[in-house]
Amino acid sequence: MNELTSNEPIGSKDGIDVVSGLPVYPLGHHEPRRADIDPRAAKRAERQVALMFAVSALSIVGAIIAYIKVPNTTLIYVPPFGPVNANHLSVGLLFGLGIFLIGTGAIHWAKKLMPDVEVSEERHTYTSSPEDKAAFGQVIREGKEASGFGEYKLIRRTLLGAMALFPLPLIVFLRDLGPMPGTKLRETIWEKDVALVTDATYRKIRPEDIPVGGLVNAVPANLLAVEEEEGNLNQRGKASIILVRIDPANIVSQQGEGWDYQGILAYSKICTHVGCPISLYQQRTHHLLCPCHQSTFDLSDSGNVVFGPAARRMPQLPITVDAEGYLVAQSDFHEPIGPSFWERG
């Protein structure tokens, strides 16, 4: 038994903090642990902690051996996880056990053997002493006298003017944060007579290739050349469309007169909510569903929103066929595709 097992908090005497002279918060009744009063229990706890550290050391060595020796092509069946790579499993378990036992050993040590008396420490006052405050005020006053800040009016005013102006260039520099978006948000690379081609295989599409109920993920024919030139996928992100064919009798409305071709409708693939690419097209209901936030658009009715957080309809691309009978665009989209932005209006 040592002095720390007494019921008096550290640093106090008779309920008074020896440094601050303030009364200490009274502590509850302290029950000594078995290891505090029984040397055999203390010895046992010591052995337990030492065992954890020793097993940890063995596990770490074992992890290194497992990394070298266990083949990483063998799969072991571990319920409920299924087949697991033997190398990953053994290295992970041994290394994890090694770290875990260092932690448990330290906690067991602290709980069983380190002093367990409650300690309360009083905070000291945070204000500066009156002497320090007076000295600080003196320095400021002497500085003002010595510099003559109150005396030289012209200097004081010109200094204030200079200080007021110096942040102005920082506002001008804001312009360097990047070129203005210009028409980027309003235009895509679709234009008159650009052919529609299948995404990933880049073949031109004839109207008869799309049956009623059919869906084609398409991009503009000039996309690959533009991607090559710009070195990024931005234009793909804006110009991707889906083509669906709906029995003309079932088309309630579309965004412009004659924008379809015999019931083939082209709509942007980019959700007007936050811009997820969507082609979850349900051919029976003609609904286009966005998997991100469940916005649903009715492609048989101008792409209007029928459910979800999207605020605007899905933009439609006017299409027709060229002289060779391939589907081409009549023009670019007539409204900005994708999510709303500040200046969109």
């Binding site: 599409i205 109920g213 059919g214 869906l215 084609v216 669906v244």
Partner: peptide, 18 residues
Amino acid sequence: TGPQNMPVFSDKTITPEE
């Protein structure tokens, strides 16, 4: 065939080989 709500992917836009 485009069963239920699945759209049809015709042999022209996705060839039999694809």
